[in-house]
């Protein structure tokens, strides 16, 4: 599928900057919560087949924690904050002061704390994006799931599914220290949102 006819490189760079600003603010929020520096990998913007998107987090069957928000407003889309089970437990123990996080299933309070952390980070991602683009973007109430990555991420592909077999993903990874992955943000704007995002940033869409 061809999403952009002209100036493809420029448009991809603009979307990288979108990911950079959103995740940059979320990284700051996370580093304040953790009281330690959080680094961020350079955002990746890729048009990927549905299968490849789950590969980004270790495959369709990989078990992950994900906070999912549907973005509504001028430029609707889907936003995921994804954590490995280990990263989720480590976040809980450090932020929520839950010292004994069991290896078993998380209890209700732990899940709720995780959902709230995801909500804070996703909120800062979105609000900085809305400021940057002057578009209104507001999140739905976040929902948390722990399950197979393929099953979770498929919810972000429904809008693209109506027009093709791949989706444009803005992927930003949080790092702590050398290369320990702390979490990943996936933003998948609806196909209709791209003209609005580009117009708001002064990039002609066609």
């Amino acid at each position: 599928m061809e999403l952009f006819k002209n100036q493809k490189d420029l448009k991809m760079d603009v979307l990288k900057e979108v990911g950079n600003i959103g995740a940059g603010n979320a990284a700051t929020a996370l580093s304040q919560l953790l009281n330690k520096p959080i680094d961020m990998a350079v955002p990746k913007v890729q048009l990927l087949g549905f299968e490849e998107i789950a590969e980004k987090v270790g495959g369709a069957e990989e078990v992950v924690f994900a906070v999912f928000l549907r973005v509504e407003g001028d430029a609707p889309g889907n936003l995921f904050f994804i954590l490995s089970p280990d990263a989720a437990r480590s976040l809980l123990s450090r932020i929520a002061g839950i010292s004994e996080v069991s290896d078993e299933e998380l209890n209700e309070m732990e899940l709720s704390a995780l959902n709230e952390i995801g909500n804070i980070l996703a909120g800062s991602y979105l609000s900085s994006l809305a400021d940057f683009t002057s578009l209104s973007m507001y999140p739905t109430v976040p929902a948390l799931a722990m399950d197979m990555a393929g099953a979770i991420l498929s919810y972000g592909l429904l809008q693209f599914g109506q027009m093709g077999d791949d989706a444009l993903l803005i992927d930003t990874t949080f790092l702590e220290g050398q290369n320990e992955i702390e979490g990943q943000f996936f933003l998948i704007p609806d196909p209709e949102s791209f003209p609005k995002i580009f117009n708001s940033l002064g990039v002609p869409f066609e």
């Binding site: 549905f50 299968e51 789950a54 495959g59 369709a60 069957e61 399950d147 197979m148 990555a149 393929g150 099953a151 979770i152 498929s154 919810y155 592909l157 429904l158 599914g161 077999d165």
Partner: peptide, 23 residues
Amino acid sequence: VGMADLNVGSYDKVIRTTGLGSC
């Protein structure tokens, strides 16, 4: 079988698809 995909097989074959959510 990938997402939005289909396939057929016979005899000793096993057909698998992973990570079904709303699909």
